[in-house]
């Protein structure tokens, strides 16, 4: 069985497609996690059934390490699944998906360890677990209870695979940059490092050393203002997009150390207010 990075993704696509999910593409803007994709945030609200799965490159400026840390990344990849309502056998289905990508639960110690999730910038929370494979957290599993401070009814299940960590377990590799990305037997075999190392180096340098703080602060203000005006115009998806921009700009400022601890809470509150209003508008327009 192929265990290279892209094969794991392809198999997950196939698996979740067979579970009746729409297979989506990553959100085409910077986000911190797959949860921020409107396919999860907005679609997890309201009564309409929804099943989606997609890869989401996720940017965490504060985790940038110039490519020098074996498992911490400025940009990592999540495989995100959202199932609304959460089916009763959701954990069994999830475990099937692990088998499907070559993680045999009779050889690897899979454990569900309590981890209740909170996304303060989204006003979201849920109960669930981090799923361990041989002591490595490979998935965050959450039953959403609220999103944008609105209760989720019916309750969706969110499955977020950490693709790099999962691949590390499956390929038994210590350093993320040594993961095979495509067929190692192929014409142009590539490692994770070959594909992503340059980005890690440059973006770490960007966010830690070259970020123009006053300009970024201004951009944050602009994104917030744009979001508000779009909310007024009842354009929920563009409005939400500007909320995401604000969220990413905040992450950049936070990583650069430009925001003090007290200010931090205030910025998070501002992003949360935008997310909440976008969610409210989504519900008000009966999109849920």
């Amino acid at each position: 069985m192929r265990t290279d990075f892209q094969s794991i993704i392809l198999k997950l696509q196939e698996f979740w497609s067979n579970q009746g999910c729409v297979i989506l593409q990553p959100y085409d803007g910077e986000v911190g996690a797959g949860t921020f994709h409107p396919a999860t945030t907005l679609r997890s609200l309201g009564p309409k059934p929804w099943r989606a799965a997609y890869v989401q490159p996720s940017r965490r400026p504060a985790d940038g390490r110039y490519g020098e840390n074996p498992n911490r990344l400025y940009r990592h990849h999540q495989y995100q699944v959202i199932l609304k309502p959460a089916p009763a056998d959701v954990l069994d289905v999830y475990l099937e998906s692990l088998k499907h990508i070559g993680l045999d639960p009779l050889l690897h110690d899979i454990r569900f360890v309590e981890d209740d999730w909170e996304g303060p910038t989204l006003g979201a929370s849920g109960l669930g677990w981090e799923v361990w494979a041989d002591g490595q957290e490979v998935t965050q599993f959450t039953y959403f209870q609220q999103m944008g401070e609105i209760p989720c009814d019916p309750v969706p299940a969110e499955i977020t695979y950490g693709l790099e960590r999962l691949a590390s377990v499956i390929q038994d590799v210590d350093n993320v940059y040594d993961l095979t990305w495509n067929d190692p037997q192929g014409a142009a075999p590539m490692t994770y490092g070959d594909v992503a190392l340059q980005m890690e180096k440059e973006f770490s340098a960007f966010s830690f050393e070259h970020l123009d703080v006053p300009m970024t602060l201004r951009h944050f203000e602009d994104a917030e203002a744009m979001c508000r005006s779009l909310l007024d115009s009842k354009l929920v998806l563009p409005a939400y997009e500007y909320c995401l921009k604000g969220s990413h700009l905040f992450n950049l400022l936070d990583a650069s150390g430009a925001i003090s601890v007290t200010e931090r809470a205030a910025y998070i509150g501002r992003v949360r207010a935008l997310a909440r209003q976008a969610c409210e508008l989504w519900m008000e327009m009966n999109h849920g």
Partner: peptide
């Protein structure tokens, strides 16, 4: 495999 994984 479990020991290997945990050691990693």
């Amino acid at each position: 495999a479990i020991i290997q994984g945990n050691e990693r």
